[in-house]
Design a protein around this nucleic acid. Structure first.
Lengths: 344, 344
DNA sequence: GAGAACTGAGAAAACGCTTTCTCGCATGGC
DNA sequence: GCCATGCGAGAAAGCGTTTTCTCAGTTCTC
């Protein structure tokens, strides 16, 4: 019969009593400390097994000063991109015995810093995805969040790795692809106004426009979800563009759905591109041309960077930059009125 | 200048020294205990603010015996269904000040019970999604996991709410819909062999077959992802069925994609149905007819049930059963060779 | 004006563990 | 046979909180 401590749960004290040793010895055995007599160790292990004793992690955390848990702050768990980051992070961390605590800010960016601080205090480190947070706010909280890894943001603070996707180069590649297909009138269906990754795309497009003065690029307001794309049909048609760069795959899918409802053919009438290469992108009809980002791998890398920080290792690669790979599928095709050589 | 305790972080002791009071008083103030003189309370608050003191959650957890965290065990974070449950759970829990810790078993069901026990000890309660775990194993670990809420599983143990989707009824509704459209040869593209929810579907189809002896239902082996559906094209065509019930939306989308590649028209040649109504289901081409499950709401309900358990409230609704709603979209249509009245 | 009742804050115990410190005991050397 | 050495395990001190216990100082009552 398992005797229980006052709390109702079996603790180290119960095992100690049953094995006829002190708490300290039980702790030593449980932690594989070999300065314990093998006979006694065996007795302790037997007692522990019989009582099904499992050390209380909270007690351990307090004593050891670590929780074996990391936190991730995401603006929206419904977004496939963050789901993928979470997945990669979770898997990689699990392999090293770490769990992940999620903090979803539900796009309420005013809550983000509080949430981040909160999460950080419960964990050994933090991965922060906060695309809408202002630079000022970011700089202010970053120092108190160490060990910290940033996703798609950079900071002046030292010792904070940033994993950033080169969206600027990505949109340029996509725009280039459309131009190669003969499109001369493009439109960019932008993302959320104050999003860091949207800014990167805008910068990329500026560079593209500078390099291609003959191409007309219309900027359209947008957002980051299906509905944004779906509702943008009128604006897209009004722009007269034949090649559309949607902020991301979700927006592109919404747009294609809306165009389809209007009886327009993609890519016959209009070419549509996305960004991210979420798992569903290859299964849309037509399959979506997009800028593929190895996003799950990014989550995995986030863990590796964070791990190095937690272990206070020399970090030779403080952050890294991911180049999107142009993934040409069926949603892009020759412009209706080609003005130069067109393949296919 | 903020003085720091040995640990390097600001603790209650630092605030106590700065305010010239004892730790106890600081704690009382921080917890809104009104037996403290207003002047002293103000002094403490000022000191806390100046030092930017935030109580250490681990210390609090140990003292209070609660972590304000719940855990969720999922077999695969890549699956939209579990993502949605997680989302609903996370949001609902957040509203009550709880965070969620995720434990992804990566479909390794042998790890599931260890993972669950591990997660449970770090949290105040657990939501368990373990479709592949055997009944025996489930019954064995359930008692040690309380407070616990099960998703799509039931247990004989008392006090464990189960949130289960009535997949059995769902497939019958879908099958009925296909028969109404004139289909007489159906095929079920099954899910993972030992999945609880697959068993429920199979039972539902048995009932359906008993009620519709004139309808031919072929059972095909399958899985739960895109590729399963994509690879099943040959088997589906070989079956001669014109109405296909895929295990879930993912499989249905894979199948539609495969059929499309073969030049077949959905629903012209073959009608395809899914299950779950994941967010993408309405954006496929054609939009997918499916059994809609309010899955995010299910995650939310999971929290409410768990909360009741944690608070030891009387739980008048120990679990609940969700009826899928038949969502007819464009992927189903009249059978090619109608044998009875067909609408449209 | 003295004892009772009360108020409010400090001391100390508790939460469950790890780890340092300490010390008894056995062994080895001379 | 005695002291130095070392090994192994218990005692105790943290880790950072909350909360009970205790008690000094004040107010109230008769």
């Amino acid at each position: 019969m398992a005797r229980k401590s006052a709390s109702g749960r079996i603790g180290i004290a119960d095992v100690a009593v049953k094995a006829g040793v002190s708490h300290a010895t039980v702790s030593r055995v449980m932690n594989g400390n070999f300065t314990v007599d093998p006979d006694i160790a065996a007795r302790v292990r037997a007692a522990a097994a019989e009582l099904k004793y499992q050390p209380n992690p909270v007690g351990r955390s307090l004593a050891l000063g670590k929780t074996d848990t990391i936190g991730i702050v995401v603006p929206d768990l419904a977004n496939p991109t963050f789901q993928a980051i979470l997945r990669g992070l979770s898997r990689a961390a699990a392999q090293d015995g770490y769990r992940v605590l999620i903090a979803d800010s539900f796009e309420v960016s005013s809550e983000e810093s509080i949430l981040a601080a909160e999460a950080r205090r419960r964990c050994d480190g933090l991965v922060l995805c906060a695309p809408r947070m202002t630079d000022a706010e970011l700089e202010e909280i970053v120092p108190s969040l160490h060990p910290l890894v940033l996703i798609n943001r950079t900071t002046a603070a030292p010792g904070v790795p940033s994993l950033v996707v080169d969206y600027g180069q990505g949109v340029q590649d996509i725009a280039g692809h459309l131009v190669d297909l003969g499109h001369t009138r493009l439109a960019f269906l932008a993302g959320p106004p104050h999003s860091a990754s949207n800014d990167m795309r805008l910068k990329g497009l500026e560079a593209f426009k500078a390099a291609h003065p003959d191409v007309d690029v219309t900027m359209l307001e947008g957002g980051s979800d299906f509905d944004t794309g779906h509702e943008a049909v009128d604006a897209v048609l009004a722009s007269g563009a034949t090649g559309i760069l949607a902020f991301n795959d979700l927006v592109a899918m919404g747009l294609m759905s809306g165009l389809h409802e209007r009886g327009l053919d993609v890519p016959g009438d209009i070419s549509v591109t996305g960004f991210d290469d979420i798992p569903f992108a290859r299964y849309t009809t037509p399959a979506l041309t997009t800028g593929a980002v190895p996003i799950t791998e990014l989550g995995e890398q986030a863990w590796h960077q964070l791990r190095a920080l937690i272990r206070k290792e020399e970090n030779d690669a403080p952050g890294s930059r991911y180049q999107p790979r142009l993934e040409v599928r069926a949603s892009t095709g020759p412009a209706k009125a080609p003005r130069s050589t067109v393949h296919g």
